[in-house]
Simulated scan of single mutants.
Amino acid sequence: MRPPFMGFVRYDKDDLERLLADKKARLAQEVASEMAYFLADDDQSRITSQVLTGNAQQCLTDTVNLTQPQLLVLGTHGRQGISRLLIGSVATTFLSTLPCDVLVAR
């Protein structure tokens, strides 16, 4: 799976792989820092995080199949008007297709 719009980028394969690896490393460090702050008073050894690229639905499905969690928690974007009553398409798909419980929070 490739990040969106990668077809427009003109780098050779080695440069592109290095750029993606650098970006993922920076994001992983930022996620680790934020999680450490958020979970400062909790047992952090039971929490893991990953930075994945590609289609959100496929990445989450693959990760759930690999890790077999008891609960998947998804956040949805806030919407205006009638769309506030609906949840996102990714969250809707997960409500009925995953082999674990799903909690959707707005």
Results as ranks from 00 to 15, higher is better:
residue 11 Y to P: 02
residue 74 L to S: 04
residue 32 A to W: 01
residue 42 D to Y: 05
residue 20 L to R: 11
residue 14 D to R: 11
residue 19 L to E: 14
residue 41 D to Y: 11
residue 68 Q to S: 10
residue 75 G to L: 05
residue 14 D to W: 07
residue 23 K to L: 09
residue 51 V to T: 04
residue 46 R to V: 09
residue 61 T to L: 01
residue 38 F to L: 13
residue 64 V to D: 00
residue 63 T to W: 01
residue 24 K to P: 00
residue 71 L to S: 03
residue 37 Y to V: 09
residue 70 Q to Y: 12
residue 42 D to R: 14
residue 71 L to G: 01
residue 86 L to K: 06
residue 69 P to C: 06
residue 60 L to R: 03
residue 30 E to F: 13
residue 67 T to H: 07
residue 83 S to A: 14
residue 50 Q to H: 10
residue 49 S to N: 10
residue 44 Q to L: 06
residue 40 A to I: 12
residue 21 A to P: 09
residue 42 D to F: 08
residue 62 D to Q: 02
residue 87 I to H: 06
residue 27 L to A: 11
residue 79 R to M: 13
residue 73 V to W: 03
residue 40 A to R: 14
residue 31 V to Q: 06
residue 28 A to W: 00
residue 73 V to I: 15
residue 72 L to W: 03
residue 54 G to C: 01
residue 85 L to P: 02
residue 76 T to M: 04
residue 39 L to M: 09
residue 81 G to Q: 02
residue 16 L to H: 06
residue 11 Y to E: 15
residue 35 M to D: 06
residue 55 N to V: 05
residue 59 C to H: 01
residue 84 R to Q: 09
residue 22 D to M: 08
residue 78 G to V: 05
residue 34 E to P: 05
residue 9 V to Q: 01
residue 39 L to G: 03
residue 13 K to N: 14
residue 35 M to L: 14
residue 54 G to D: 02
residue 47 I to W: 13
residue 35 M to T: 14
residue 50 Q to M: 08
residue 53 T to N: 02
residue 37 Y to W: 11
residue 64 V to S: 01
residue 72 L to C: 05
residue 58 Q to H: 08
residue 16 L to E: 12
residue 48 T to D: 09
residue 44 Q to M: 07
residue 40 A to T: 10
residue 8 F to A: 15
residue 50 Q to S: 14
residue 22 D to Y: 02
